[in-house]
């Protein structure tokens, strides 16, 4: 009996302990954001790496998602003669949910992994210790620029993804589903509200923060050797993805109920 309780309790305690460590790490990073020194060159590099180079991945994800969405809504809408809702539902679906969530997950796969692998390797090869001996705080030098860059870049990526996703829906709608191009676009703009897009951008910023935070946290706590770095990379992607989906639910609840 005690063995069963132990088996149940141990993972719960470990999960709570991990959550506490992540929260402390996040607090330390936030504490360093406003205090000098500021590493602007590192911030610029991070924006390029995290934001700019993620554009192709986010764009491709969005265009195919928008297209598939149009097909599905058309097929579903046809069951009760509501095919005309395709443009507005594609737009709302992309901006509120799929743009930020799928964009966030793709960036998690691309960016959380590379941050964790890079910082993990630095830890394993004593580069983090070397930073300390050169009077440089590793959190400030490595984590803060990446967290700021991801939090700022992600809303821009989501906005681009939204536009490309809606374009994907329009492409499929006008070429495969007999929509009139002007009518499709008018229908999209008439029904789309500012907050549909705005809520998605806020989600994007939160997801960006999560991605960079998980990458840095797991990288800095990497165990020794190639295996340690591999495990840190995997943990960063998995935890970032799960936290994005969980945060998405919470944010949706906060934004769109009551």
């Amino acid at each position: 009996m005690t063995a069963v309780l132990g088996a149940l309790g141990r993972p719960v305690l470990m999960a709570i302990a991990a959550l506490g460590r992540v929260a402390l790490f996040a607090g330390a990073v936030l504490g360093h954001i406003l205090r000098p020194p500021f590493y602007l060159r590192e911030l610029g590099t991070a924006i390029l790496q995290i934001g700019w180079y993620s554009l192709p991945v986010v764009g491709l994800t969005a265009i195919f998602t928008g297209g598939a969405l149009a097909l599905q809504i058309y097929a579903g809408g046809a069951r009760f003669n509501a095919e005309s809702v395709v443009p507005s539902i594609v737009a709302i679906g992309m901006t509120r949910e799929l743009g930020p969530v799928l964009g966030g997950l793709m960036v998690a796969a691309r960016v959380a992994s590379s941050i964790a692998a890079e910082i993990g390797t630095m830890k394993v090869t004593e580069q983090i210790d070397a930073l300390v001996t050169l009077s440089t705080n590793p959190l400030k030098y490595l984590a803060v620029p990446r967290v700021i860059a991801a939090t700022l870049s992600m809303p821009v990526l989501v906005a681009v993804g939204d536009a490309i996703g809606i374009m994907g829906g329009w492409l499929v709608g006008t070429t495969r589903l007999d929509f009139n191009s002007a009518a499709y676009l008018k229908n999209t703009t008439d029904f789309l509200e500012v907050w549909d897009v705005g809520s998605g951008l806020v989600k994007g910023a939160v997801f960006g923060f999560i991605v960079a935070l998980m990458g840095c946290y797991h990288g800095m706590n990497s165990a020794r050797g190639a295996q340690g770095v591999g495990r840190a990379t995997k943990s960063a992607v998995v935890s970032a993805s799960v936290l994005i989906l969980a945060a998405n639910y919470v944010l949706t609840e906060v934004f769109f109920t009551t």
């Binding site: 630095m122 090869t125 004593e126 930073l131 001996t133």
Partner: peptide, 18 residues
């Protein structure tokens, strides 16, 4: 910071920032 400024260290693997 003042304490660390007095030190230099050569790491085993070099620990150069790549």
């Amino acid at each position: 910071d003042a304490f660390l400024a007095r030190f230099g260290m050569l790491f085993q693997g070099g620990a150069l920032f790549d």
